[in-house]
């Protein structure tokens, strides 16, 4: 462990914090272009966060301390997750203490706090949102874990850097099982980040909302943290996708200044491409009915399992 590794670790966290709103802004921009609308500025999410942070906080009378604690816990979990995912370098001091399974656990913890906080005030929407979120979660979480486990079977380790290094070193080349996992992963990403076929982030339409229903009681800085955490979550998921399927450009092995100089622009390029892709998916697909979501996620889960099967069968 040297100073540079700690610096990279810190940098990863800071970059994630800083870039996450921009990623969302970019997705929104691409979507607007694709839909022939005038696009909002790339900086709009930052402005929203600033506005919210400066506002007074309104809390429901019967909210418990859990309600006020949750935004901080969720935000903290997401920042930590950003530090674990090898988005720029694989030699990160923190990764030794959390592998991919722990990462999924971290996401699950954030989800659970989110659902509990939503139930805390005791409104109809809050509990409905919590129920739906857990419904999405109990299928999406195993699907994500299966995707990661397929990748870890290929590289014989559940540590994300080991997976990334094994893939980046290129001696695996094409691996059919990863095709299945990639499809599953995209489906999970859409569901977990409340993107279009599953949830619509832009609406408060009562009957279809999931994520927004849970946030209804939040305001001011708490809401800002929740929104920021959601943006970080999207950023993290995209970065997990890179770590598992597109590890090019990541500084493998000992981190030097050159590696970082390559890694940062590579990450930016990949993020831009992924954002555009996400916008495209969201534009061409339609929101589904809530009771269709389990079907969607079961498909994702089964694809991941199939990836596992193909891995064992074809040995690659």
């Amino acid at each position: 462990m040297n100073a540079l590794e700690w610096l990279t670790q810190l940098l990863e966290g800071v970059v994630a914090l800083a870039a996450a709103p921009a990623l969302l802004g970019w997705v929104n921009q691409c979507r607007a272009w694709l839909q022939n609308r005038r696009a909002p500025s790339l900086w709009q999410p930052y402005r929203n966060l600033r506005k919210l942070l400066h506002k007074e906080v309104l809390i429901a009378e019967n909210a418990s301390p859990l309600f006020r604690l949750a935004p901080y816990v969720i935000f903290g979990a997401m920042v930590l997750a950003a530090g674990i995912i090898p988005s720029m370098g694989t030699r990160l001091p923190l990764v030794a203490s959390a592998d991919a399974i722990a990462l999924v656990g971290l996401f699950a913890a954030a989800r659970m706090f989110m659902a509990l906080a939503a139930m805390d005030v005791g409104t109809a929407f809050g509990t409905m949102g919590a129920r739906r979120e857990m419904m999405v979660g109990f299928l999406a979480e195993p699907a994500l874990l299966m995707v990661i486990l397929v990748a870890s079977l290929t590289s014989s380790s559940t540590a994300l850097p080991a997976i990334t290094e094994a893939l980046a070193s290129g001696h695996l080349g094409l691996s059919p099982s990863l095709a299945f996992s990639a499809v599953a992963f995209v489906l999970v990403l859409l569901a977990e980040n409340a993107r279009i076929p599953v949830d619509n982030p832009a609406t408060h339409l009562e009957l279809t909302m999931i994520h927004e229903a849970m946030l209804l009681e939040y305001s001011g800085r708490h809401l800002a943290l929740m929104e920021w955490a959601a943006q970080l979550k999207l950023f993290n998921y995209v970065c997990i996708g890179f770590a598992l399927f597109l590890p090019w450009g990541v500084a493998v092995g000992a981190i030097g200044p050159v590696g970082l100089l390559v890694a940062v622009p590579a990450l930016a390029l990949k993020l831009a491409a992924a954002g555009a892709g996400l916008a495209l998916i969201e534009t061409v697909s339609a929101k589904m009915r809530v009771m269709r979501i389990p079907e969607f996620l079961a498909t994702a889960f089964l694809f991941a399992v199939l990836g596992l099967l193909v891995h064992v069968l074809l040995g690659a």
Partner: peptide
């Protein structure tokens, strides 16, 4: 991990894609 030649990997990928499409 065995190192398969590239064309073998491509063929395996094609096979996997066929299966994927069947499930789709």
């Amino acid at each position: 991990m065995t190192h398969l030649p590239l064309d073998q990997q491509l063929l395996d990928s094609c096979a996997a894609l066929l299966l994927l499409l069947s499930f789709a």
